[in-house]
């Protein structure tokens, strides 16, 4: 079994109009090399589900998103995402704006093959006003409470970035917080992971390494070897986020051509060289919050 594919292979396995979930959180452990590959392709009209960071912003800048399902879009240290804001303020995006816990609940429902899961979250807010497709359900028990029936967020594909993989799709997320990558993988028909390193199964670190295996390999359809693949987002414990690059990226919301010329339409290897090289990325210290 060998699930290792290229960035081009990934793009060829996606299609217009797909619903794609993206792992990570804000400016942390985003599969940016996979996002850039989509930006460099003809793919369009995507529905994106994300705890958003520059993945959402870069896709906005390339007009790839038809509909965004999200709770927030932020670059962490830079609270507001300039490209996302621009797309929103131009009225370009169809939205399903949710509490961040409702996003997890929708993914969990999909993961469990349920059509919905009940929750109180959303009650009394405009989340329900602007998402009239979300229905309610009354408890069949004596309390009779009315709940939000958070619909399943079924994904055609999930894109994740991990620290280590093998050829079979065994993955390890070694950062302290795995975020909700497992839920994205379970909610998706197919999951593709980019990985800092691809090693032989015997080199996965035995029992200690297996603790970092957050979901099973049967969920993984493709592994893309992409050292530095989360740049400019962080990938603990390998590297932190590249603040200077995130600032340059944010400033490019005013005029994207210069940024695009420098960093888009490149192979992954060319991109890594363009931003300073793999050693430079590996030396970016982890952030303190």
């Amino acid at each position: 079994m060998n699930k290792v594919i290229s960035h081009d292979d990934l793009v060829s396995q996606l299609s217009d109009g797909m619903t794609i979930g993206i792992g990570g959180w804000g400016a942390r452990r985003k599969p940016m090399s996979l996002i850039r590959a989509i930006c460099n392709s003809d793919l369009q009209d995507l529905t994106i589900v994300s705890y958003g960071g520059p993945d959402v912003g870069l896709l906005c800048a390339h007009k790839k998103i038809k509909k965004l399902i999200f709770g927030f879009v932020s670059l962490d240290m830079i609270p507001l995402e300039a490209h996302f804001r621009q797309a929103r303020q131009n009225g370009e995006l169809e939205l399903m704006e949710l509490d961040e816990g409702m996003v997890q609940w929708g993914l969990r429902a999909a993961a469990m093959k349920m059509s919905f899961l009940p929750t109180r979250v959303g009650m009394g807010t405009d989340v329900l006003k602007y998402n009239p497709e979300i229905k309610f359900i009354t408890s069949p028990y004596s309390d009779g409470e009315q709940y939000v029936a958070m619909p399943a967020l079924n994904l055609d594909a999930a894109l994740l970035h991990v620290n280590t993989s093998d050829h079979k799709g065994n993955t390890q997320i070694e950062g302290p917080d795995p975020f909700f990558d497992e839920m994205f993988a379970r909610a998706a028909a197919k999951t593709y992971v980019s990985s800092e390193q691809v090693v032989d199964t015997s080199e996965l670190g035995g029992k200690e390494g297996a603790i970092f295996n957050r979901f099973e390999r049967s969920l993984v359809s493709g592994v893309i070897h992409a050292p530095g693949g989360a740049h400019p987002t962080s990938c603990a414990p390998n590297y932190g986020f590249d603040m200077a690059h995130l600032k340059e990226y944010s400033a490019a919301a005013k005029s994207f051509d210069g940024y695009s010329t420098n960093y888009l339409n490149l192979s992954h290897e060319e991109y890594i060289e363009a931003v300073g090289g793999q050693n430079f990325i590996n030396d970016i210290p982890l952030p303190q919050f």
Partner: peptide
Amino acid sequence: YDNPKVQLLGVRGFPGNFIS
């Protein structure tokens, strides 16, 4: 909402926080 003057973060965890 459909064409905001200023887009901020998104509702984030506020719906869940304030009810919980």
